[in-house]
Design a protein around this nucleic acid. Sequence first.
DNA 1: TTAACTCATAACCGCGGGGTTATGGGTAAG
DNA 2: CTTACCCATAACCCCGCGGTTATGAGTTAA
Lengths: 107, 107
Amino acid sequence: MSAAHDLLFRTLADPTRRAIFERLCREGEQTVGALTLRSGVSQPAVSKHLGALKQAGLVRDRHEGRQTHYSAQPGALNPLIDWTSQMAGFWQNRLDALDELLQRMDQ
Amino acid sequence: MSAAHDLLFRTLADPTRRAIFERLCREGEQTVGALTLRSGVSQPAVSKHLGALKQAGLVRDRHEGRQTHYSAQPGALNPLIDWTSQMAGFWQNRLDALDELLQRMDQ
DNA sequence: TTAACTCATAACCGCGGGGTTATGGGTAAG
DNA sequence: CTTACCCATAACCCCGCGGTTATGAGTTAA
């Protein structure tokens, strides 16, 4: 089954949520407040997105006093990379098979 | 902006639709009827999914008589591959910077 | 202790989208 | 010509989900 892919794709499908993940990848660890500032949505919305990202294994949270720091966990993208390269691989295999077939016909 | 990524992620987020795309990648060109058989949903649903995949550039359609053949266009996955490797790259850069910092502190 | 700040959760709302059935256009078959 | 088949579109339904405001738990500051 592709249950792992499913969660990853669905989590990254939302633009706001993906933008938050991008910021964490580009700029490193951020507090909820900092993420909320340039997110364009309310703080509860950001918290919910962070919860979804965490459930998908894309981010980690670290509690420090009264603020929570989130950081990206890009290793979680590996299933995505595997899936895409696998799809591209199937495609390439069929191209190779076609090449071979054509070469046999030439002989 | 990440408008291209957005369409790709949203299109691949649905399990049924992604399964159709996977079948086209694995088994090559298929008619709508053939795809409908093992899809678990009705024929109109499959047609709508194929329309979405086509709009995202993930599939091509070829009309032959009264049936339509669809085939995967895996080159459309390149933006996805680029995005994921870019995210992983940011992460790696920060790790490298941390390494460098630690080595300077050792001196 | 009281007050202020940060974040998470609850409760609610509106809309987008994936599902269905019904229908029609286009093509092959009788 | 009539019938049967394949697919796309229309019209509709419903549920999930991303957004909001309101509130509370936990922590620092006065």
